Amino acid sequence: MLDDSHRYLMNTYSRQPLVLRKGRGIKVWSADGKEYLDFVGGIAVNVLGHCHPKVVVAIQKQAQRLLHVSNLYHIEPQIKLAKLLCTHSFADKVFFCNSGAEANEAAIKLSRKYAKEHFDEKRFEIITALNSFHGRTLATVTATGQEKFQKGFEPLVPGFKYVPFNDINALRSAINKNTCAIMLEPIQGEGGVKVPSDDYFKEVREICNENGLLLILDEVQTGMGRTGKLFAYEHYGITPDIMTLAKGLGGGVPIGAMLATEKVAASFQPGNHASTFGGNPLVSAAAIATLETILEDGFILDNCNRMGAYFIKRLLELKDYYPEKIVDIRGKGLIIAVELTGDGSPIVKACLEKGVLINCTSGNVLRFTPPLIVEKKDIDHLIDVLEEVLSK
């Protein structure tokens, strides 16, 4: 099977030599029957774990009823999902698509159109952060403040400026008469789980208000309970004008969403933007089941906070044992990073061999985004494996 993978799939991923066939909760099994503890979670996608019963049943029921119709018609599950998202967020309107990159693309288009309608034609520039990640389309890879993702795809889309994350003075200095929006991740995920200071986003919000700019928050990775609140912006006591979601929204199926206030959303009218599959009946049903499960009894968010705190505590103990190998432990809820003094790839490989799936980003940062149902025994097992690997 691996031979066929190499033969027929484009070489766009550095894949582990592993074919995963089955998943339940926080565990997955390979084609040869080996069991693994999954601390990657589809990179923050499987918020309820693999094949959560409520999500599976919702997909089964909807698949028997209606798989897909065009957005030329009203779609019942899509309407219900939009209402749920707006009821539990700052937003008044939702646009559905298929991925985080598409959600961010929609946010970029909406912010430009809004600025042209409410200010002037020259307002089109968006300020983003160095070390950020917003997607792989041509516009979103340009918005991404990392040259390694942009190399080879020049010329890039004009209209983006980059400033250091968590540097309010740099942000203020970058604004000019052409600026229309500021686009930031509440926590930089792909950039190494960089958490801002407590007052950073309050100051960003004030800057936007003072200068008539839109604040776009990319919550593709931090949304849907990942940080211990339904949306990460809730930690900072502010609301954005636009927010993007994907990853955890569908509990494992591909769906993205761009949420906005009524005033901003009004700049999109029929013909301005669209998505053939966006918010189709099947994925909307899965997302409803996911969101309702997160909200229904408070257990998921509570568990995320408790297990996140316990996880960081255990990692800090590990750091005390290996100060020459571990530089920093950081995170919020269950998006957590271990910054190493060296390359993290050998550790990822060694953990894989011991039946634990982990992820490395930015070369030397181990990133953990397990399902929000993770338990202490799972964390303890991971720590035991990491300790054994680091000791060697």
Rank of each mutant, 00 (worst) to 15 (best):
L37Q: 02
V389S: 04
F299E: 12
A63G: 00
I75G: 05
A285F: 07
D38G: 05
V220I: 06
P346R: 06
Q60V: 07
A103H: 05
R205L: 09
I300A: 02
G212S: 10
G308N: 04
V69N: 03
L156Y: 01
E353H: 11
K247E: 10
K61Q: 15
I335T: 13
Q146S: 12
D343V: 01
A174Q: 07
K177I: 09
V204H: 03
V356T: 14
F311Q: 01
E105P: 00
K148T: 02
D198K: 15
G363L: 03
C180N: 08
K313N: 12
I255E: 09
S197Y: 03
I79R: 11
A31Q: 08
K80L: 15
D320T: 08
V157L: 01
I329L: 11
N303T: 12
K325V: 02
L230I: 15
D38S: 09
E388F: 12
N209H: 09
G279N: 10
V338R: 01
H74P: 00
G159P: 06
A139C: 07
L291M: 15
S391G: 10
N169L: 11
N364T: 11
A286I: 02
L184P: 06
Q221V: 14
R367I: 14
I79F: 11
L217W: 09
D218S: 13
K27R: 14
V19Q: 13
Y162V: 00
A260G: 13
E219C: 13
K377M: 12
I336D: 01
R15C: 11
L81W: 06
R65Y: 06
L171S: 05
K332P: 00
D384C: 02
A274M: 12
L184N: 04
E324W: 03
L215R: 07
K354H: 14
L334N: 14
V193Y: 04
L352C: 06
I358T: 08
T239V: 15
Q150D: 02
Q78G: 02
A289H: 02
G355M: 08
S30A: 13
A107V: 06
D384P: 00
C351Y: 10
S132I: 06
